[in-house]
Amino acid sequence: MTEFDLSRDSVRALNQGLHDSAEGRWLVSHPDGRHCIAVGLDAPVDVAIKGHVGYYCAGMNKRANITIDGSAGPGVAENIMSGTVRVLGNVSHCAGASGHGGLLVVEGDASARCGISMKGSDIVVAGSVGHMSAFMAQTGRLVVCGDAGDHLGDSIYEAVIYVAGRVGELGADCVEKEMTPEHRQGLADLLSAAGVEADPDSFRRYGSARKLYNFNIDHASDY
């Protein structure tokens, strides 16, 4: 276990150390809202951060497992490729933006635009998400165990959204879809992998109506 105290050394030194590590466990203390902690990792390391982090923590993560024992600022796990990022608290806006793979778990709530532009990653939020979540989401899955704000899934492509609670107004081209046994099983597996307890039968599924995939003048008012 490598212990790193951010009250005594810099984020730069931490990230360089993590980039130079092929494996191992790291314990990071006193993050105190600093930005860009543990970004660009590309090794099967386990990183535990004790406290709140600022912008872009775990950005572009690949293979590493990162746990934030606190809340996270904007863009946590943005463009995640693989590995797991777990936030025990709440997250600010744009969590998991444009993620290509891997898993982001938020045990609290997520603010606006959670899963914006996601491209294959999985996001599980034990609480609720803010407005415009999964905006232009391309592929991947967003699971919301609580409520979802307005304009959910606006301009969504092939990503899938599951929501257990209330949903505000759906975004352009986003519709509720049938919850098939395959979707229910996939959701159950994802919840299990995320370590989040919820009844898969309580979720509804949302996805693209595919009316805006190719411009059609008759659909212009849907934008």
Binding site: R12, N15, H35, C36, V39, G40, Y55, Y56, G59
Partner: peptide
């Protein structure tokens, strides 16, 4: 400004 800082961190400046 913070986004640029993130990219610099990822690429080790």
């Amino acid at each position: 400004e913070i986004k640029i800082q993130e990219l610099r961190e990822i690429t080790d400046w």
